[in-house]
Design a protein around this nucleic acid. Structure first.
Lengths: 329, 329
DNA sequence: TTACTTCCTGGAACCGGTTCCGGAACTAGT
DNA sequence: ACTAGTTCCGGAACCGGTTCCAGGAAGTAA
């Protein structure tokens, strides 16, 4: 416990330099010497101090990650990011953003203090400007975000447009020609894409979607429930619902249940994301799966390439969505 | 960008020592000197290097956290842990456990390398022995776990027994005298506590619960759904369900819906945990709330006390559960 | 004036690695 | 036998802070 490289060197009868060479596999060492050093290391249970390593090398081998406060929907991403980084010998440091301005300030300090070599950011609501500044100050950053179409910023996203189309085609195959759409926030790129893909696919099948059937939402269960409830009260005729995320879809289910509609007989429901919740509703939710784990892994690898300054570091990765059919359609 | 303490010292016309003293507020400095140093710091945008600090101090001011692979139910805990640690000037490093033995080995290396000053562990399934060994090797550790009753190990848990009793009293108030119980895994302490509290509270009201009405489950949606379905088929008469976690409760809801039972009129359902899912079911789930955020905060603070070797560091914290009434009762 | 504090400050060692550079020993070439 | 080139190794500087210890200046009491 607590042996240093000097202890190892002394025990093996060599210099610190040589021990370091053995540890890092930098050749130029006699086979015999290597053996001696290895043995000394084993006998002393020597493990190089992480702190000293980081200090000497000038790089922390740590990645920071910003996850929006509320949306721990993304835990799948975090999980796969941890796994991927760990496999590459990097650590993941979680960063808080829940304290607004104060959080940004402390983030800035950590960057200046070189607490991590790169930053992974999920959907930086208000902080995008700040993040951009950091990026331009040459901190490697990868965004996991599909709300912006921001060339020049490395990012990982999904095929939202195609996802919307997948939902549309699935509903059309089931003979549903009068869908009600509950969107996400209008400002988000993903909302526009999901809606666009959906509408276009319907158009391609010869069905024009009346704007009255498009309800602008905010990704929340409750507002979606209210919207669907109102649509039912207003006598809007629809045979299906396409909600832009799963909680919204769950809200639609609640309103439909309350109104005595049978699902999927009377109304089919399709969500988006495929979070855990989706399998637990009644009936289980058909949804467009965003492959969170793949996205996390892709983002981690992409960021590492940038941290290591690989010349062939890709600009971005798009991970395809897929349709998951369950009981609600 | 990249100024060091030496640069600051040179600019202020003092020694590194003095700058260090100013930075750390160790008195013994002339007011005038302090001002000069402060100004030099400001002019150079100097921020002490995190790596160098950790190295010089010999402590990383980082806490490691182990979260079981599947159960990202705990994201609320992680969130509050991050916030709490950050407020105290500590960082949170996520650790992977998804690679079994290999993960443990790499955890051991990180501990030996002093990558963090303390460890926060949520329900270490198979790794408890290993964790114990680390603890006995004097690594500060706090467990967030209520499945073991392990004196001598600092931990944070909830009042499972009282939670079970709260569920029982709530159902009794609603006139439900024939509850069906879907438990968690039999081996878990929390299962025994939740069940014990529930049964005792019913007994106190003069209602003996027939063992036939206690179904051993495993916290999963699907198995719970099956169990309830079978109970219905077998003609077991019950007017309520107490599931030991929320996904199980959702499974019960699904089976009841499928059988055409109306909730809560025919059958009332109570869950446990109050995860996000609970508000999104139909009807929204009445449940026993485990205050995840409070638990995370308590665990973080408790661990910091141990890391700092506060003599009055508490042995453990028990955070009370509370009843959250929603539509399912 | 001397002696003894008190207040401030700086030099230098230290934390535990990495890395540059120089040199010894050995091999090979002529 | 002398030179040139390899191979292997160690000394020492360095990364950027903290901390121990010594000592000068100023203040106070004898």
């Amino acid at each position: 416990m607590g042996a240093t490289i000097a202890d190892v060197a002394a025990r093996a009868g060599v210099s610190k330099t040589t021990v370091s060479r053995v540890l890092n596999g930098k050749g130029e060492t006699n086979e015999n010497t290597v053996l001696k050093v290895r043995q000394a290391i084993a006998e002393l249970d020597y493990v190089p101090s992480a702190g000293a390593l980081a200090f000497a090398r000038g790089s922390t081998r740590t990645i920071g990650m910003l996850v929006p406060d509320l949306a721990w929907v993304y835990s799948g991403i975090v999980q796969s990011v941890v796994d991927t980084l760990e496999a590459e010998g990097f650590g993941l440091r979680m960063l808080s953003v829940s304290r607004g301005e104060e959080s940004l300030r402390s983030l800035g300090l950590k960057v200046a203090a070189k607490s991590f070599d790169g930053l992974l950011v999920i959907e930086p609501e208000g902080a995008l400007d700040y993040i951009t500044a950091l990026y331009e100050a040459s901190l490697p950053i990868v965004l996991i975000d599909d709300r912006f179409h921001r060339p020049g910023f490395p990012y990982v996203a999904t095929t939202n447009r195609e996802g919307g189309a997948q939902a549309a085609r699935h509903l059309l195959e089931g003979g549903r020609r009068r869908p009600l759409v509950i969107t996400g926030p209008e400002a988000y790129g993903c909302t526009r894409d999901r809606l666009g893909g959906f509408v276009d696919a319907y158009a391609a099948a010869g069905v024009e979607i009346d704007p009255r059937y498009i309800v602008w939402g905010d990704f929340q269960f409750e507002s979606s429930r209210c919207s669907v409830e109102r649509a039912l009260v207003d006598g809007v005729e629809f045979d299906s619902v396409f909600a832009h995320n799963d909680p919204s879809a769950a809200g639609a289910l609640a309103a439909l249940h309350a109104a005595g509609r049978e699902i999927p007989r009377d109304v089919a429901v399709v969500g988006f994301d495929d979070v855990e919740l989706a399998s637990y509703t009644y009936p289980a939710l058909t949804t467009i799966r965003q492959p969170m784990r793949e996205m996390g892994e892709a983002a981690a690898l992409l960021l590492l390439e940038h941290v290591r300054k690989s010349p062939e570091a890709a600009a971005s990765r798009i991970i395809p969505t897929s349709l998951v059919v369950r009981g609600s359609t």
